[in-house]
């Protein structure tokens, strides 16, 4: 287990130093929040809360998703293509720890993204919540981001360095639009409302929407996300095994 902590620090520092990555993951949700805040009157009631609060949760979810997909997917695919993952395989680092570190680094990056969007809501959107609600919201969104962290790593294993950008972009748009992160699900056409029920993005944001409306997070939502995290985790393990047993070119 020598150096596992050093390796995690190394990964996180590389993520933080990547200006483009930080710009996309933090900049997008913040800018979208400011841009679309006035699409409705910020005080409009929706799902037991106000639009400004509801949409803050939507954008925090969007940010968490984008951060995970890029931290895992884009970078992992690039590192597979460059041969860096193979170099790591011939060090004493246990092979599972590369994947585990990618997921851990992704989780560590997601937290500040969520907090920055919340701060934008507080300072620019005029969102007012009790201290306890802020805390529960942050923890719920953070913990359940594990499903996206696994999705990111799986994308990084499945895609090549050429296909990963279009794939991540497509996932980002599909999950956020059809998951109701930009247009609330009840406002979507009927057919799409049924699609939302299958998407992790919808269930993820639903947990947060419940918290800010003063309700308990839905068990059904949590169960779906857990299911996603488990299935994706298994798929990652399988891809990792396949990759590991592959001979050198």
């Amino acid at each position: 287990m020598t150096g596992l902590g050093t390796f995690l620090r190394f990964e996180v520092r590389r993520l933080l130093r990547n200006v483009r990555y930080i710009g996309i993951t933090v900049g997008f949700p913040v800018v979208f929040y400011i841009l679309f805040l006035n699409n409705e009157h910020p005080g409009t009631r929706i799902a037991g809360t106000t639009w400004k609060t509801y949409f803050m949760v939507s954008m925090a979810s969007f940010g968490a998703m984008v951060a995970s997909l890029n931290a895992g997917g884009t970078r992992l695919a690039a590192e597979r293509a460059s041969g860096w993952t193979r170099q790591l395989r011939v060090t004493p680092l246990p092979s599972w720890s590369y994947v585990a570190t990618k997921i851990a680094a992704s989780m560590l990056i997601v937290l500040p993204v969520i907090v920055v969007v919340e701060l934008t809501g507080l300072l620019l959107g005029g969102v007012r919540l009790g201290l306890g609600t802020w805390a529960v919201l942050t923890v719920v969104l953070w913990v359940s981001a594990l499903a996206f962290a696994s999705l990111g790593v799986l994308v990084g294993y499945v895609a090549s360095s050429e296909t990963v950008y279009p794939l991540v972009t497509a996932l980002m748009f599909l999950l956020s639009f059809f998951g109701g992160l930009f247009t609330p699900v009840p406002d979507l056409p009927l057919a799409l409302r049924h699609v939302a029920a299958f998407l992790p993005s919808y269930h993820y944001a639903s947990l947060g929407w419940a918290v800010v409306a003063g309700r308990a997070p839905g068990l059904g939502d949590a169960a779906v996300l857990l299911g996603y995290a488990m299935v994706l985790g298994l798929a990652v393990t399988w891809r990792h095994r396949v990759e590991e047993s592959r001979a050198f070119a």
Partner: peptide, 8 residues
């Protein structure tokens, strides 16, 4: 390829 990670 280079076999090295970027940004370090």
């Amino acid at each position: 390829a280079r076999g090295l990670p970027h940004g370090v």
